[in-house]
Design a protein around this nucleic acid. Sequence first.
DNA 1: GCGCATAGTTAACGTCATTAGCCTCCAGTT
DNA 2: AACTGGAGGCTAATGACGTTAACTATGCGC
Lengths: 207, 207
Amino acid sequence: MPRARLTPVSVTEAGAALIDEIGLEKFSMGLLAERLEVKTPALYKHVTSQADLVHRIAVRAMAEFADAIRDAIQGRAGSDALATGAQAMRTYVLEHPGQYAVGDAAAARATGPDDPIIPAVKRVVASWAAMLRGYHLDSSQEIHALRMLRSALHGFSTQEAAGGFQIDASVDNSFTWMINFLDRGLHDITATATAATTTRTPPPGGH
Amino acid sequence: MPRARLTPVSVTEAGAALIDEIGLEKFSMGLLAERLEVKTPALYKHVTSQADLVHRIAVRAMAEFADAIRDAIQGRAGSDALATGAQAMRTYVLEHPGQYAVGDAAAARATGPDDPIIPAVKRVVASWAAMLRGYHLDSSQEIHALRMLRSALHGFSTQEAAGGFQIDASVDNSFTWMINFLDRGLHDITATATAATTTRTPPPGGH
DNA sequence: GCGCATAGTTAACGTCATTAGCCTCCAGTT
DNA sequence: AACTGGAGGCTAATGACGTTAACTATGCGC
């Protein structure tokens, strides 16, 4: 049995892959050790606890997620940036459901400003904010549009990943429909920018 | 120590309350037994396993959730029904985060058509569908609008419940803003019903 | 008052996270 | 090439938790 096989990074990577395959509930140190062809206690030479390992996975996941969103939006603007970024998010969640779930949970209960997941979360928010800038929203509405976008994309992606959409046909169509809906609405806000912002905009007279 | 104190229902109710307080991760049979002033194995006289108990909690939660949505929408239509139903959902999730999470998870992996959670899920969907009918959408778009609505409301509520919105100020405003945005968009679809449905509707000429 | 079905109890087992203590391999020194 | 020290892996043990088995006691129907 040769030495120097595992490192904190390699353990984290293997854990990330495993958590995508079997989910956080079934994830265990024993399973990960087995996959690494090592006995369970060996893992503790590289991570201090299961909680520590999961947090490392979360940080790594959020960083990769931030990269994916940034790369998708890069060089695009407006509707194009929205559609591409949204698809990138959906793809990431579908391909890495466990990592996304863990990253999202860790971000929500991030301890302090020194938690290494915070920069990654900030990069995600910055990407979405940059994307929204293409719609020239009133600055007072940006925070609301951002939260709506996060909510809609997060909700759709996680429900799809969890198998929450019964008729699996046309989920693609539903997603693009939603993106079109959001895009149209964001454009209309800009178009009616001088009207009241907190009350409903009257429907346009016709097409 | 008198007899005949616990029942499957009372155990489920106590479990539901506990899971809201401490979350699914920290939930354990030992803690629930302690709260019921009983030793752990006593619970197994009323539920067959922890998985069984959690599933009972899920079914109960989904039924109560369905009731809340139905009651909120009852007797209302259009924008009013949307706003009230959405607030009812948000309130339920914020007040019962553990139960909602468990119910949602159970619904996603519902085994067969004989799973008792299915009727409850169907009632929820029926309520949303009835609400959407007030917007007179093209029938081909209903499924997409429904999924978008579920995604947005689910995403917003769960992220808020998890503490995912950093600046906690104005979360109320963000929610009503989102509801207004969705309402406006749904009205606009109806107004431009004869135009192409899968491509973006051109922005209205002006206000 | 008597029995018995049932709710609850104690004891025990298996699994998992975690820790302690040992062992062994290999890098760098000589 | 032998020496050594530290790092990485292993076995054994502990404690929490889910679960089962076997026992006990209680209160309802006769």
